[in-house]
Design a protein around this nucleic acid. Structure first.
Length: 903
RNA sequence: GGGCUGUUAGCUCAGCCGGUUAGAGCACUGCGUUCACAUCGCAGGGGUCGCUGGUUCGAAUCCAGCACAGCCCACCA
């Protein structure tokens, strides 16, 4: 991104903010508005040879505020990727939007209406006492209220979305695209209308799809009912006894099924029994679906009110009787039960069976019943005329695309789920009997029943093409929400028009979302994308785990949904983002514990203060920053070892953090970032950059090093901690130019690793260990940190000869080389002796302890090297162990000699 | 019924291809307010890596079995 970006002026609030504690609220809003207004989030104009990074926001439902799962997805992984790729110089499009959320939104609004006006009746023409138009007006009111709220919350999280391309699934142009999609599918023979068994929700008064059906355990009465033989049978013929939890559906039975291999029934297949109460003759049929181990091995077959039975019925050409209507009442076809409500009918039926002597017994069983995932109402399987999408032909290419790697699923374990689901996919019921959603572009002729579908981009039809009637009825149903969201990756880019955006940004790069909507959304986007565009919608699917509070999954119905808004206000978006992402492995569920959030806040604050310190050092040395501050100052002869060390460590961090993000190891990226920034930069280098701890005349070098390292660190941290990093970067760059001249971190280049000095890093590692040992000894001896010690270093201390000032500064000690009176502590072969008054007893105790440990380690090395290890292990591993052995031998020898002296 | 995942410090979790004395954050103990930060610093305590076998010179890591916990899919009346 070396080309000129017109550099818009950063807001003053950001440039001048300097509180001791980073107060996100003081700058976040300004910063975000400025980023957006400056066009940073909009991909720059097309350039030849570019490889854009494209991601679609997993459109949140407009049903209320965002929750923590959204925060993890949007403010965590997705913004992290978007910002990182943007910094890598890839034109980045992250497209925002929201979903009208069909039934879920309708349920929410209906509840709201009931709260406001009381529960009103619903029938064909009114819903909650409102006409269709009035009701839809209420829906739109809700949408217009919550949509901006959701968009504001996305901004609060710092999401670098291109707001110039925002879409809503019910926008007029999106409605048009969905309509065209439907018409094309219909004309291509993918859609059909048929009477088939569906999941019906008595509460929501609509059908729903297989994946919206969940199972819950329930205890119900299981009735054993005898079906008398229709004709006289030889003595010894067994009674036909079936077990059912739904006796009221007996009147709709059209067969009794047994397993074909069941010896008990084999000879009786084809004979007939009488359906109790209905007194209808039905045959005994054989079907594999029957479990011979259940009850007597005979199953009542009710194709009209049970999914399995419907399929059995299809296989055997059985009649379908419907005895329950969409309100749960028995229809006239139910005969004596007609007019009764479902539950009353069940009781009445049991009584009649008992009276007729056909009720053999009743018992309680625990079994799984299907419920509507959205409202928990028990499924009422009904046979209704619905629109269906043939899935198998669409699924095949979607399976192939993942198999041959055109789309990769990360982590891999989810591929199996994806295949398993698509390979056993069933046709999708796409019509819904609700009002809120995309209208189905189909009309029916009242005179000749013709199905009239308009031309692709044509007007609503007014005349039946077959009988010329003008009496057309528009299909009152709407489409399943997921029917429209399946188009998201291409419909938002202008499809079916061949727009520039579509050509440039399809297929997308990554689709990031929770594994819980792999089937609902991801698989369907794959199918529709391939079908409409001839290519996959994205190259990588990254699936994250669920955010739990406590051990439970967050869900509206449990009322344990946590809003990120309060957290952002309390801790800041940076802290929340960091807390959500850090230490979580790919695809694993996580918990957002309070402690983690605090760690995030503390870390952000630490970063802020490293920045403040750096800025203060720069301001204290006017003219220190010669040349670009984002260029390594290693050619400066005034650099100390400490300066060179942190620069080298920074280069190492660049390599490592880049690798982690590239590998989608975001949790480890966050953790590694914290380790470096806090554990190395803050805890060691910042201490060594303080004037009191530096050789005279090296303050400029410290300022330059700090500036360079801070610049790198801010870039490295920006993808996950955008606000505090840019606030600091803007202030830093005010004090010294960068080579790339970026106006903001948002569009600043991601760092390239410079040369490392590994020998120095190694030596510094020893320094750190020695310093820690000195501090530990000091603590043991109860010597105040403010008291300056004298420490003698012996043994393998030669490499440390140039580091005495460094060690002295960190340990508050004067360092000498050579032996000494006191007993040593040995670290990495270096003997450390504190010059303090001897306490023979204490020293002896410590020596014995150290010697014990040293001997154990030595023993371990000896055993290892004495075994076949030496012959079989790779040479470098063996070599390493030999070195360790030598070091341990020396340590034991030294400690033994010292112990003898104290003796 | 089929498939998948987890079991590591008091808590929440990292630990990719097997190789030092198994890590982090929080919590805990002791010490410390000299001007980046008390949303701080320093030093510490704490784990036979669920169990049992196997492969290997070497297993938290690979394999098998088992025990718990959880998830997904499925037509159990």
């Amino acid at each position: 991104m070396t080309e000129t970006i017109s550099a818009p002026k950063a807001p003053h609030a950001v440039l001048r903010y300097s509180g001791k504690t980073f107060q996100p609220s003081a700058v976040e809003t300004f910063l975000y508005d400025w980023w957006e207004a400056s066009g940073f989030f909009t991909p720059p104009p097309d350039r030849a040879g570019e490889k854009p990074f494209v991601m679609m926001l997993p459109l949140p439902n407009v049903t209320g505020d965002l929750h923590l799962g959204h925060a993890l997805s949007f403010g965590g992984y997705e913004d992290l990727m978007a910002r990182w790729h943007r910094m890598r110089g890839e034109p980045t499009l992250w497209l925002p939007g929201s979903d009208h959320a069909g039934i879920i939104a309708q349920i929410v609004v209906e509840q709201e209406l009931a709260k406001e006006y009381g529960r009103k009746t619903s029938d064909e023409d009114t819903r909650d006492g409102l006409t269709r138009d009035q009701f839809l007006a209420e829906m739109w009111r809700w949408m217009e209220h919550y949509k901006p709220r959701i968009y504001r919350q996305l901004r609060m999280l710092g999401c670098s979305l291109d707001w110039t391309r925002v879409h809503f699934t019910m926008d007029p142009d999106m409605q048009r695209r969905v309509r065209i999609h439907f018409i094309r599918l219909y004309k291509g023979g993918h859609l059909y209308r048929a009477d088939r068994i569906v999941h019906w929700c008595l509460t929501c008064q609509t059908t729903y799809s297989d994946i919206e059906s969940k199972h819950v355990e329930r205890v119900d009465a299981l009735s054993y009912v005898r079906y008398p033989w229709a004709d006289p049978m030889p003595p010894g013929t067994p009674d036909v006894i079936v077990a059912t939890t739904r006796p009221e559906t007996i009147v709709a039975d059209t067969a009794v099924a047994v397993h074909p291999a069941d010896q008990r029934w084999r000879a009786l297949i084809g004979r007939e029994v009488l359906v109790p109460v209905a007194e209808r003759r039905v045959p005994i049929i054989a079907d594999e679906a029957v479990d011979p181990a259940f009850g007597t091995g005979a199953l009542k077959v009710t194709p009209g009110h049970d999914a399995t039975d419907f399929e059995i019925g299809q296989r055997h050409g059985l009649a379908v009787l419907s005895v329950i209507d969409t309100r749960g009442r028995m229809t006239p076809a139910a005969g004596v039960l007609a007019g009764l409500d479902r539950d009353a009918a069940r009781a009445a039926m049991v009584e009649r069976l008992r009276a007729a002597g056909l009720l053999v017994k009743e018992e309680q069983i625990t079994h799984a019943v299907g419920v509507h995932d959205r409202c928990g109402t028990i499924d009422e399987p009904l046979v209704l005329k619905q629109w269906w999408l043939r899935m198998a032909p669409l699924a095949a290419p979607a399976i192939a695309a993942v198999r041959d790697g055109r789309t990769r699923i990360v982590p891999r374990k989810f591929e199996k789920m994806y295949f398993q689901w698509l390979e056993s996919i069933r046709d999708w019921n796409v019509s819904r009997q609700i009002w809120w959603g995309h209208s189905i572009p189909v009309w029916y002729c009242r005179d000749c029943d013709e199905i009239v579908v308009p031309d692709e981009d044509g007007p609503d039809p007014t005349e039946c093409p077959r009988c010329r009637s003008h009496d057309l009825r528009h299909d009152p149903d709407v489409l399943d929400t997921w029917f429209s969201s399946a188009l998201w990756p291409h419909s938002t880019l202008g499809w079916p028009e061949r727009t520039a955006d579509l050509a440039r940004f399809y297929p997308g790069s990554v689709l990031e979302t929770g594994y819980d909507i792999l089937f609902f959304w991801v698989a369907r986007m794959m199918m529709m994308g391939i079908h409409n565009m001839g290519d996959v919608p994205f190259r990588v699917v990254y699936l994250h785990g669920l955010v739990r509070t406590g051990t439970e999954k967050m869900s509206k119905s449990k009322g344990n949904v946590v809003s990120p808004v309060g957290i952002v206000e309390e801790h800041g978006a940076d802290a929340l983002r960091f807390a959500l992402v850090s230490g979580v492995s790919a695809g694993a569920d996580s918990q957002l514990a309070e402690g983690k959030l605090e760690n995030g806040r503390h870390f952000v604050n630490k970063l802020w203060n490293i920045g403040r310190f750096t800025l203060a050092r720069i301001d204290a040395r006017p003219g220190a920053l010669r040349g670009a501050i984002d260029r390594s100052p290693t050619d400066d002869p005034a650099l100390t070892d400490a300066d060179r060390w942190i620069i080298s460590r920074t280069e190492a961090a660049v390599t490592e953090l880049t690798r982690l993000i590239e590998s989608y190891l975001f949790g480890e990226y966050a953790t590694a970032l914290q380790q470096f920034v806090w554990g190395e930069l803050a805890d060691f280098y910042v201490e060594l950059a303080k004037p009191a701890r530096r050789p005279a005349g090296s303050e400029d070098a410290a300022a330059r090093t700090l500036a360079y390292v801070l610049d790198r660190v801010l870039r490295l941290a920006h993808p996950i901690i955008p606000f505090v990093t840019d606030t600091l970067a803007l202030q830093l760059w005010e004090r010294g130019a960068t080579a790339d001249g970026a106006p903001s971190l948002v569009v600043a280049p991601w760092p390239q690793a410079g040369a490392r000095d590994e020998a120095l890093e190694d030596r510094f590692g020893t320094v750190i260990d020695v310093v820690r040992a000195i501090r530990s000894r000091r603590q043991e001896a109860a010597i105040q940190p403010s008291i300056r010690l004298t420490v003698a270093l012996g043994g393998d201390a030669d490499p440390l000869r140039s580091c005495e000032a460094l060690i002295g500064a960190l340990a508050n000690a004067d360092i000498r080389f050579g032996g000494g009176e006191a007993a040593p502590t040995i670290v990495r072969g270096v003997e450390i002796r504190l010059a303090i008054p001897r306490d023979a007893a204490a020293e002896r105790g410590r020596l014995e302890r150290d010697l014990g440990e040293a001997r154990a380690l030595l023993e371990r090395s000896r055993t290892l090297l004495g075994s076949t290890f030496a012959a079989k292990a790779p040479a470098p591993v063996v070599e390493k162990e030999r070195e360790r052995l030598t070091e341990r031998e020396a340590a034991v020898a030294t400690l033994e000699a010292e112990l003898a002296k104290t003796g």
